[in-house]
Structure formats: structure tokens, C-alpha cells
Design a protein around this nucleic acid. Structure first.
Lengths: 80, 80
DNA sequence: AAATAATATACCCAAAAAGGTATATTTTAT
DNA sequence: ATAAAATATACCTTTTTGGGTATATTATTT
């Protein structure tokens, strides 16, 4: 099983935005309609997520999943 | 069940890039390691996809899924 | 026009996600 | 230091994905 990575574009984005908004995971869960468990899996970098669940959360912050040129950081981590 | 939408950021991106590269769905499937069925679901806008499968395809085109401002979505996907 | 290639649809199955709940650990407030 | 709140981990169930294969439709080539 692929290992989790707390620090990836999506996890970092959500965790940062949530804290900036002074929300708890539980509040974000309620406001977005996804399960609390999902918010946790998301922020802790579960490798496999459903796109529409992720979008359900991102949408709350005015964002959405879209193809983006890979960053140097991503390129660096390709090997593992 | 949510309906499929052929024209969304991800589907359009993959279909366009694949055709630019003069590849068939089958070739893209082989080259990326995802199933042919997935390439089809992806290009036809299946509402729910696994992020790591999508990334497996996007990576081939030097991209990856990342949170993107909604207002920029259209611009980002039509260009480059 | 016919033949071939490419794309789309329909079926089944194994594997895994999402969610709920309960428990443990960490962080924050008093 | 203690209590309370927030976050993390573990177990279980239901639902749905991804993939394979077979068939149908559409597009391309000759």
C-alpha cells in the first residue's frame, strides 16, 4: 500500500485554508457535507480520494481540482 | 446518479492532449498503465474518479491535480 | 461502398473508498 | 496540572470504483 503523505498540494491547501478560517475539522465537515473521516483522510494525505468529494471541500474555498503543470517538488518525489 | 459531463477541465484536458499527441485511447492506456476503461470514463466525464488514477494519466502530460481558483478554471484549461 | 480502426456502451467481479462509531493521542484553555 | 477540545487511529459495513471482456456504434481509410 502506498504510504500517506501529509504534505502534498491538496492536503496542505485544505489544512491551511481551514486554519486560516479558524475552523475545526468537524465544522468543515458539516459545512461541506463530507464526512469527518474524509476531512481527516484528506488532510493527512490519503493517497486515493474521490475527485468529487475533494471538490466538495475545495469548492468551499472557491477552488476545484484541475490539471496543473507539475511543480519541482512533485517532480522530485516521483521516484518513490 | 449524477450525470456525466464530457466537457469539464479534466476530460477536456486529457482528450485534447491525447489527440495533439496523435494517440488512441488504447495507446494512452498502455503508456500510462491505467485500464482502457478508465481512459474512457475519464474522457467522457465520469463524475467520480480516483485521484491517483487521474494523476497517473495527467503525469504523462507533465501535469497533476491541484486546487485551482474557480474563476481561473476555464482559462487554465484552454491554454497551454 | 466495404473494411478496418477507434470509440462508446453493457455486463460482472474484486478491491477499496467513504462513512459511522469508538478509542487513543495530542493540543488548547482554565 | 487538569479538564476540555481537537485531532488521530482502529474496526466494521455499504457502496462504488476500476478493470476485464464482449458487443455496438461511430470514424477513418482504401
Amino acid at each position: 500500500m502506498k504510504d500517506w503523505n501529509r504534505h502534498n498540494a491538496i492536503s496542505d491547501f485544505v489544512r491551511t485554508r481551514r486554519k486560516e478560517s479558524k475552523m475545526t475539522q468537524s465544522e468543515l465537515s458539516d459545512l461541506t457535507g463530507v464526512g469527518l473521516r474524509f476531512v481527516r483522510d484528506l488532510e493527512q494525505g490519503k493517497p486515493n480520494l474521490m475527485t468529487d468529494k475533494v471538490n466538495q471541500v475545495l469548492l468551499f474555498f472557491g477552488h476545484t481540482l484541475a490539471p496543473t503543470p507539475i511543480s519541482d517538488e512533485t517532480r522530485r518525489n516521483l521516484g518513490e
